[in-house]
Computed example of a mutant assay.
Amino acid sequence: MSLQPIDSQQRIQNLDVIRGFSLLGIFIVNMIAFHSPVYYYDPYAWWGDSLNRQAYWWIDVFVQASFYPIFAMMFGAGLALQFVRAQQKNTRFSSFAVRRLGVLLAIGMVHAFLIWSGDILITYAVTGFILIWMLKMSGKMLLTLGFIIYFLPQTLLAGIMFFAAMVDPTTVTYFSSVQDIESSVANYGSGSFGQIFSQRLEDWQYANDPSAFVSIIIVILPLMMIGAGAAKVQLFQKAKEKKMLLGICTLLFLGAGIAVKTSPYWGEQNLAFVFTQDYVGGPLVAMSYMTLLLLIMTAPVTAKLLQPLAKTGRMALTNYLLQSVIGTIIFYNYGFGLYGEVTLSTGTLIALGIFFMQVIFSELWLSKFSQGPMEKLWRKLSYSRK
């Protein structure tokens, strides 16, 4: 017996709502990279004028580094649920999972090198190859190890960076690369397709050199473990039975997360504070958003109101890739060529408007079809038909 795809009746709406919500935050952050050379400048200086300062503060505290962890946890949860289904049906999971992740890796490579350098699918696929061999652990074990493996090294690294800052403050100072900024603006804003491709490749290599790629895997893997553990203890399916726990977790995670996320504003705007903000505060706020959504979804009225967001989450792969296609068409020279010409506030409003249209698009598409176009392709290439 081969493993078959999940139909719409078997889906867990809570997961789809959270996944759809994460797409909104991811798009708001990615939009900054679509229209500006984010890899190469000091954001506090770049967005420091009065027009952009408030928008950057809002994104920095409530959005930046707090939505990709949700997406990673949902990815882990999805793999865990597929693993549980395979066990229930007494079917082989590992070969299916490897094939499915291999397809995702190929899609990510096309996305990264032909559309946008900030792709996350490659990282998720590679990390997923590791996670599938850990799914035999219990849900509680996955949750415990996930928290330890994530927060222990990040806290230690933050401590090392703060110590380095005390010894020599210049080691954690932001520096902008004027040459790389000018190159990005010239190539994306007015370059040929070949120049845009070269710049995209250079940006991907800058963000994904071997040490950086391994570091990203180390960050993403425990987040996926946490999501997988939450799925295996049935947190998403039994949210109504765990309302007290969800309420406590929301308050604790949100309070601690916001305190850390605001640290560059009550501390110093250097790499030590920003690292702590993103890698310690970011996931804490992400977990508070996730538990808050689960709490909200326990009310039938709210669950019904959020169905459009759930449909957006059902088409997560399609919508994620579509965001990149639309974003690059707007800002790259083979489209409207607006790279480097919009304010942060304008870019954020554009992201919100496009996402609203994606919600409508997802609703209309799923009224006619059972799944999104990219989900259908992924499914066709992943499931055997023996």
Rank of each mutant, 00 (worst) to 15 (best):
Y289L: 14
V63K: 00
Y150E: 05
T276S: 15
G257D: 11
T343I: 04
A55L: 00
G159C: 08
A259E: 10
R92N: 14
S50W: 09
G194R: 01
Q237F: 02
P69G: 01
F331M: 06
Y289S: 11
G337W: 10
G327Y: 04
E341I: 07
Y339S: 03
L114H: 03
G76D: 02
Y41P: 03
I354H: 04
L131Y: 06
I28T: 03
L246I: 14
V260C: 10
L364V: 13
S117V: 10
A125M: 03
I12T: 15
G189C: 08
I181K: 01
T127I: 06
A77Q: 05
W378M: 08
W47E: 11
F197G: 00
I115Y: 00
G347F: 04
W58M: 13
Y320D: 08
F96N: 07
S94W: 12
A158M: 03
L246A: 14
A165N: 08
G313S: 11
T318L: 09
Y383D: 07
S382V: 13
I354M: 08
L142W: 00
Y206P: 08
K89L: 14
V172H: 07
L338G: 01
V185A: 04
G159E: 09
V219L: 15
I6P: 01
A272N: 07
A45M: 11
N270G: 14
K376H: 11
I326W: 06
S94E: 13
D209M: 05
S36G: 02
E375S: 06
A259I: 15
A272L: 12
E241W: 09
Q64N: 15
E268G: 12
K242D: 13
V178D: 15
F275H: 13
I28N: 02
K136Y: 13
G227L: 01
I122M: 12
P43D: 02
V98W: 06
L105Q: 05
P153W: 02
W204I: 06
M31I: 07
K240A: 15
Y339L: 09
F197N: 02
A97D: 06
Q4N: 11
G128M: 01
I132H: 07
E202V: 08
I196F: 04
I148H: 04
I149N: 12
K240R: 13
I70F: 00
F147G: 05
W116Y: 08
G78E: 01
G76R: 02
R85H: 10
A158S: 15
M166E: 15
L309S: 10
F147V: 07
I326S: 12
A80F: 07
L157K: 09
G282T: 12
S177A: 12
T91L: 07
G76V: 07
S198F: 12
K243M: 15
H111I: 08
A106S: 13
I18S: 13
S177P: 03
V98F: 14
C249T: 14
K261N: 10
R11H: 13
L309K: 11
G227V: 03
K238T: 12
A165S: 09
F62Q: 09
S345M: 08
I122D: 09
G281I: 09
Y124T: 09
R92Q: 15
R200G: 05
N30T: 08
P37T: 02
A33F: 08
F273T: 08
S362I: 04
